[in-house]
Amino acid sequence: MLSHGFATVEELVPAPGLRVDVMGLGPKGEVWVVECKSSRADFAADRKWHNYLEWCDRFFWAVDADFPTGLLPPDSGLIVADDYDAEILRMGPQAPLAAARRKVMVQKFARHAALRLQALRDPAAVGKVSAFSP
Rank of each mutant, 00 (worst) to 15 (best):
V63N: 05
A98K: 09
E10W: 08
Y52N: 00
V63G: 05
S130D: 13
P68G: 07
R47G: 00
G127S: 11
C36M: 12
L97H: 00
P14H: 05
S76I: 03
A113M: 12
A125D: 03
L25N: 02
P96C: 06
I88V: 15
S38W: 13
A95I: 07
K48E: 01
R101E: 15
L53D: 04
V9W: 03
R19L: 07
L71I: 02
S76E: 13
S76Q: 13
D85C: 03
P96M: 10
V22P: 03
A95H: 14
V129N: 04
Q107R: 10
R58N: 01
P27G: 12
K37I: 11
V22Y: 04
D46E: 11
A86W: 07
L97V: 08
L18A: 06
R121I: 08
V80I: 15
K28W: 05
R90A: 10
A86E: 15
D42P: 11
F60A: 07
V80Y: 05
A86N: 03
G29W: 01
Q118E: 08
P96Q: 11
G29R: 01
P27T: 11
D64S: 11
A15K: 03
L97P: 02
D75C: 10
A62V: 13
R102G: 03
K108H: 14
D42W: 13
S39T: 06
P93D: 09
C36H: 08
H50N: 12
W61D: 08
D42C: 12
L2W: 09
F109P: 01
H4Y: 15
D122W: 13
A113K: 08
A98M: 08
P14L: 09
A119Q: 05
A113I: 01
V31H: 00
V33E: 04
R111H: 12
E35K: 01
L12A: 12
F43W: 14
G127M: 09
G77Y: 04
K128E: 02
S76R: 06
A131D: 01
A62C: 15
A65N: 09
L89F: 14
E87V: 12
R58A: 08
G26Y: 07
V104G: 04
R116K: 12
G77V: 00
T8Q: 12
L117V: 08
E11P: 06
A86M: 11
V106C: 02
M91H: 14
F6R: 02
E10L: 11
C36P: 04
A15W: 07
L120D: 02
E54H: 06
R121Q: 11
P27A: 15
R102W: 01
P68V: 08
L18C: 02
A41T: 13
C36T: 09
A44R: 13
E30H: 00
D83R: 15
F59T: 10
D83H: 14
R90Q: 15
V9P: 05
L71M: 13
S133Y: 09
F6D: 07
A86Q: 07
F132W: 10
A100Q: 12
E35T: 08
F6E: 11
S39A: 06
A131W: 10
S3I: 00
